[in-house]
Amino acid sequence: MDIRQLRYFVGVVEAGSFTKAASLLKVAQSALSLHVRQLEEGFGTQLLVRERNGVRTTDAGQKLLIRARNILNEILLTEAELTSKKASPAGELTIGIPSGAARVMSGLLLEAVRNDLPRVSLKMTEGMTGPLEEWMSAGRFSLAILYRTEESIGQMKALASEEFCLVAPPSGPPFEASIRLSDLRSFPLAVPMRANNARRSVADVVAHHGCMLDVRFEVDSLSTIINMVMEGKAHSILTPAAIHKEVSQGLVRTIQIVDPVITRSVVLAVNPRDDHKAAIVALRKLIADVASMLIERGIWLPVR
């Protein structure tokens, strides 16, 4: 097994056939077949099933595909870190980003891409987390910023942590610095729809502790929820990043939720088909840098 064999194997799987892979990789089809056959002989197991319309991986082939992509990505990262040459990745990349994260991250990220990756065209889609997760699963994005509990991060890169807080109108009775989870039932809430990660994160903790919430409005729009709180029509449960601007302007107030604290992780998901591309490697580093900047500013919390 050598690096070239791994590149050819990944290329064949991603192209879906030896014919398409030969054209994309500019390698003779017979050479590709030979290298894949040598891999199969070396491992002593079948990796690909040749069918009339192309190829599909066996269980062993799927395991190798995951490993090979990781290996090739590590090679690119190593080359980027050790080479003295200035790489200039190019191409069009797509990223999905939740509305809350976008409010503090999108401007910094777009500026970093403009300055450090001038040949990369970044297409950014902002939305609620439910649709973004579905589109990422369908392969619509090259990367996506997503939210996860600590137990469900898997192989995705954790960028930061967030704590949920009660968001209250600027007028009204004073609050203590914190509020117990069990006391949230006293406040009429405007919250995202049930498919939204923020809603699920809060609901899971509330259900686990046998508490109740007074959900009056379910709205799949962050800006509408924030406006309702500002106008005194409801309270909400959000993360500080989502209402950072309004808090700094005195338009809403935040109260820490305790007993227990409700947390989630901000993670970076990458489409496996794009993970080995130089532009993706460079963009992943910029995203990590932006996350570190937000942690330094106190908007996000360090990874737990």
Results as ranks from 00 to 15, higher is better:
Met1Gly: 15
Asp2Arg: 07
Arg4Ser: 12
Tyr8Glu: 11
Val10Gln: 04
Val10Lys: 02
Val13Gly: 06
Glu14Pro: 11
Glu14Arg: 12
Ala22Pro: 04
Lys26His: 12
Val27Met: 08
Gln29Arg: 14
Gln29Phe: 09
Ser30Val: 15
Ser33Gly: 13
His35Arg: 15
His35Glu: 14
Leu39His: 04
Gly44Asn: 11
Gly44Ala: 10
Val49Met: 12
Val49Gln: 10
Glu51Ile: 10
Glu51Tyr: 15
Asn53Trp: 03
Thr58Gln: 04
Leu64Val: 04
Ala68Phe: 11
Leu72Val: 07
Thr78Ser: 06
Glu81His: 07
Glu81Asn: 05
Thr83Arg: 10
Ser88Gln: 04
Gly91Leu: 13
Ile97Ala: 02
Ala101Lys: 00
Ala102Val: 07
Ala102Asn: 02
Leu108Lys: 14
Leu110Ala: 03
Val113Ala: 09
Val113Glu: 05
Asp116Glu: 15
Leu117Asn: 05
Arg119Val: 15
Ser121Ala: 14
Ala138Phe: 08
Gly139Phe: 08
Gln155Thr: 10
Gln155Gly: 01
Ala158Ser: 14
Leu159Ser: 04
Gly172Tyr: 07
Pro173Asn: 04
Pro173Ser: 07
Glu176Gly: 14
Ala177Phe: 00
Ile179Met: 09
Arg180Gln: 08
Phe187Gln: 00
Val191Gln: 09
Arg194Leu: 02
Arg199Phe: 07
Val205Glu: 09
Asp214Val: 12
Asp214His: 13
Val219Gly: 01
Ile225Trp: 03
Met228Ile: 07
Gly232Glu: 08
Ser236Trp: 05
Ile237Asp: 05
Leu238Arg: 08
Thr239Cys: 04
Thr239Glu: 11
Ser248Lys: 06
Ile255Ala: 05
Val258Arg: 05
Val258Asp: 01
Pro260Asn: 05
Asn271Pro: 05
Asp274Tyr: 01
Ala279His: 01
Ile280Tyr: 01
Ala282Gln: 00
Ile287Trp: 06
Ile287Val: 11
Ile287Phe: 07
Ile295Gln: 13
